[in-house]
Design a protein around this nucleic acid. Structure first.
Lengths: 159, 159
DNA sequence: TATTGTTATACTCTATAACTATA
DNA sequence: TATAGTTATAGAGTATAACAATA
């Protein structure tokens, strides 16, 4: 009777709706819809376009390959969106003198203006999302996300 | 010097990559890819197909409208996938005697067999994901997700 | 009038891979 | 051989809305 319950399949009756992945997926869908709506209203751009502008703006000078690596945005998706952003004058691309394959990306004045205008509102959104959490809860949350991501990464490798 | 820093735009230098939404989005992409790969290998089905089978299996008897409401799956997406699942013999649909518009969904023997075989592996995955977390971390994580979701919901209403 | 459920449309994102040009 | 970047294709999910049948 006093045997400790093990956290395994014998005793696991977790309902579907308490699955961690279910909770993440539901929250992510809502966050993404919110971001899409905000960015459309604020600047008439998509989430992916904003992510690329934000990446270029925050790194200053970088190549596509570097940004794809740090962002985990699909490289095909990145390339297609970047093309549109260059065409619309938000991003400048110039050949890297050292490596003829690479192009160095930077924000044009128009892109910089958009970045400067939108970033504070995105920062405010981040603060709003955290507004109900204590500092400790934020710390634990970020650490938990790290740990879970590490498990996914490691199990991805084995298969 | 001892003035407390306020958590507002004056002092907010959070780098993009520490944005909560960025962390969620990156983790969710990895979780979804993992789930898609597992379900394809285990049963040859997509994540949405599994979600519907799991919903039908765990509720026993329910209508599409009820499952759409609790799952937050898009109702068009639900309808299209359900059609395929009925065609392939995983789900049975019978007219509700009381409401001629509604159909009551249940798993066929084939669907039940798939559910019984796949669910334990999905439960194991949930345990694996949590394996690096203490009980307290899991508690804080779930509470934090709830609080953030509540903020998104409330700010969605205002606009 | 509202609800159940289907269908259509268009867009976005993901996944994979072929392809070029250069290193 | 490997890397930077583009392009193509197909599959999967999202968003909106029109629609028929029933309540």
């Amino acid at each position: 009777m006093s045997r400790k319950l093990r956290n395994n399949s014998e005793t696991d009756n977790t309902p579907l709706q308490q699955f961690l992945t279910y909770r993440f997926s539901r929250l992510q869908a809502k966050l993404n819809a919110q971001a899409a709506r905000m960015l459309k209203e604020l600047a008439g751009i998509t989430v992916t376009q904003w992510r690329i502008i934000a990446l270029v703006g925050s790194t200053g000078q970088a190549t596509s390959a570097e940004l794809v690596r740090i962002s985990t945005i699909d490289k095909g998706l990145f390339s297609r969106n970047l093309k549109g952003l260059i065409r619309d004058g938000f991003v400048n691309a110039e050949m890297d003198k050292g490596d003829q394959r690479a192009q160095i990306l930077s924000l044009s004045p128009r892109g910089q203006a958009l970045y400067d205008r939108v970033l504070p509102q995105m920062r405010k959104r981040q603060r709003d999302l955290k507004s109900g959490l204590t500092d400790n809860e934020v710390t634990v949350l970020l650490r938990a996300l790290d740990k879970i991501e590490a498990v996914v990464e490691s199990s991805g490798r084995e298969s």
